[in-house]
């Protein structure tokens, strides 16, 4: 069974027009179908205004569909009675680390979710410990969040979600405000959770490098799914991505340009090592040809 399923999801934002009366609606998500199996690492790509964040907010029932349906672990997000269960199943990490930390001490913040769920005290303590350890922030448990770096704060935020023991975590551009070091820390923490605890991860980002190791990549543009597939499949279509002003990883770009200027390289090279191997192979081929 799929953990997240969206059927013809449409979301319109209502805005009050300039005269203060007429409502202007703009379509952020336009007929998206999703079907995500448990335990997968999914990346959603797209630039600003592509509707990826709006889509993410539907999974946690923060936003409700204008048309269509979203099922989280079989529960319809429109079902108000299941709201708590849905939020327990699908946790969410937001972009700004400062604006999602509620506690004044790290461990208190991680405990916030379980406290809301009414988990008994001894279990809260053990959950806080295990989730802080899983993101490598246990040593900072009695620090003030204000003194942590961006990457550390974002890991605390992830721990706060992990402590609720969700089956699925949606990370809505968790690295957009971080430096390169912090970005790596956060992505590694998410990958570790996916591998070790089989948590389904939905990573929303516009950094191509973070997408390479995902199981499945979904590219969104103007509220629609532009293309999807494995990272290799998606990044093979360099031309198409460029048309929509989307980047590809630097290595892929380099391989693509080399191929265009005549080197016999395969499509969809994702890592430096792959390019090195492919170049070696190309050289060997040329050697044997001569």
């Amino acid at each position: 069974m799929s953990i997240i399923q969206a059927k013809k999801l449409i979301h319109d934002y209502q805005k009050i027009g300039e005269d203060g009366k007429t409502e202007v609606s703009s379509r952020a998500v336009d007929g998206v179908d999703l079907d995500i199996a448990p335990g997968q690492f999914i990346a959603i790509l797209g630039h600003n205004g592509s509707g990826k964040s709006t889509l993410a907010k539907h999974i946690n029932a923060i936003l409700l569909p204008t048309h269509g349906t979203v099922y989280v672990d079989g529960m319809d997000t429109k079902d108000a009675e299941k709201l708590e269960d849905i939020r327990r199943t699908a946790g969410m990490v937001f972009q700004n680390p400062d604006n999602q930390i509620i506690g004044t001490v790290v461990d208190e913040d991680v405990a916030f979710g379980p406290e809301n769920m009414g988990v008994p005290t001894p279990e809260i303590l053990s959950r806080v410990e295990s989730s802080l350890k899983s993101v490598g922030m246990w040593e900072y448990r009695d620090h003030s969040p204000n003194r942590l770096s961006g990457g550390q704060k974002q890991r605390v935020a992830i721990a706060g979600v992990v402590a609720m023991e969700p089956k699925c975590i949606v990370l809505d551009e968790p690295t957009a405000m971080l430096d390169p070091m912090g970005r790596k820390e956060v992505i590694r923490a998410a990958q570790k959770l996916n591998r070790e605890k089989q948590v389904t991860i939905l990573l929303i980002t516009h950094y191509m490098e973070e997408v390479i190791e995902a199981d499945h990549v979904i590219v969104m543009d103007q509220g629609k799914i532009l293309m999807q597939g494995t990272p290799r499949e998606v990044f093979s279509r360099v031309e198409e991505l460029k048309e929509h002003r989307l980047d590809v990883p630097q290595v892929t770009m380099l391989a693509y340009e080399l191929k265009k200027s005549g080197l016999p390289l395969p499509d969809g090279i994702l890592t430096v090592q792959e390019l090195v191997d492919a170049l070696d192979a190309a050289r060997a081929q040329r050697g044997s040809a001569e």
């Binding site: 923060i62 939020r87 946790g91 208190e108 916030f112 979710g113 406290e115 809301n116 009414g118 809260i124």
Partner: peptide, 14 residues
């Protein structure tokens, strides 16, 4: 809200 906050009712404490 995303972390299930719904006021003080039924809340436990760490």
């Amino acid at each position: 809200e995303a972390r299930g906050y719904h006021g003080g009712e039924g809340r436990t404490k760490m």
